[in-house]
Design a protein around this nucleic acid. Structure first.
Lengths: 171, 171
DNA sequence: TAAGATTGACTCTTCAATCTTC
DNA sequence: GAAGATTGAAGAGTCAATCTTA
């Protein structure tokens, strides 16, 4: 996004505007939500830059890693969508692109003829290995936060995800 | 996103897979980044639902609030893009949609004939008021996090934004 | 009837190219 | 030449509708 840095924090300023209107009980929530939006934009942009040489998007990279971690190297396309929490149409689209690049193959599912298995190819494994090395080195291990801040961030966002019903909370 | 809740936290599981491969120094960063992505998806979905009756997206709502907070009720379109940290083309698109709905007007900029001023209309102010009340009530004041967790989250994400160069850090 | 997957329509975002004005 | 704004093209996401199979 081509812009000069601002001389002030735009989200903090918005929060002040909120409080000036008497919306004190919502001001911090607005600021937190907006911060998450902006952080996502920043992080996705970093990831996108690193993945560009591999002709991968983050969504397609996630599909590849899911297959890498599966015992057979293949999964039903519906499972992929569920694990990645995206719409079935998005999973179809991601697999389309990966298949065009020969990183995965669609295989008939012998246990359910409605279903489609997505299998990672040798080329797909190579791409996943290279992309992971690049992401680990250039992004994941270099977030500008202390270990404590990362842990707090992870736990707070995990609570948010849990409350939203992303996953069951073990008893 | 139409899916059953998972019986485990998919991000925590991914982090375990990372560590199992010896990528310990990147595992938590991967988990944090993925959590931010997912949290953004959840929060944006909540906001989108609440704004739907007003025929507004979050991006268009943000434009409206920026104009509401400006002293004259109008801003150059370039300033809007800079404040919202989006591409100029996105600002143009958002203003197009708002103008179609008669929530803003494009006005010639008397100080720079290259520029365009975007002015909020009476109808735009009404929409902003209603949408803000709904968002404050249904989303911003109801995030499922403690006040402490919200403050920690905000500060961590603020550090991330600052490091990325979103805004200048006062001396 | 319901579930798995795909398709087409629509929205939003970015980028590159263009046009006008500084 | 550089800056402000717009346009068209391409990518990725959701939704509603559809087709096949369970």
């Amino acid at each position: 996004v081509p812009h000069q840095p601002l001389r002030f924090d735009p989200i903090l300023l918005a929060e002040e505007n909120w409080r000036a209107r008497g919306w004190d009980d919502a001001a911090r929530g607005m600021a937190v939500l907006t911060s998450v939006m902006r952080a996502q934009q920043i992080l996705l942009s970093s990831v996108t830059d690193v993945l560009a040489p591999y002709d991968l998007t983050f969504a397609r990279y996630e599909v590849l890693m899911l297959l890498t971690f599966s015992s057979t190297g293949s999964l039903p396309i519906g499972k992929i969508g569920a694990r990645l929490q995206v719409h079935p149409a998005s999973a179809t689209n991601a697999v389309d692109r990966l298949e065009e690049a020969a990183l995965v193959e669609r295989v008939a599912n012998p246990r359910d003829r409605r279903g489609v298995l997505v299998a990672i190819t040798r080329k797909g494994r190579k791409a996943a290995t290279g992309a992971t090395a690049a992401l680990n080195d250039q992004v994941f291990s270099r977030l500008p936060l202390s270990a404590d801040a990362m842990d707090q961030l992870f736990e707070s966002l995990r609570a948010l995800r849990r409350e939203h019903g992303d996953f069951e909370t073990p008893p």
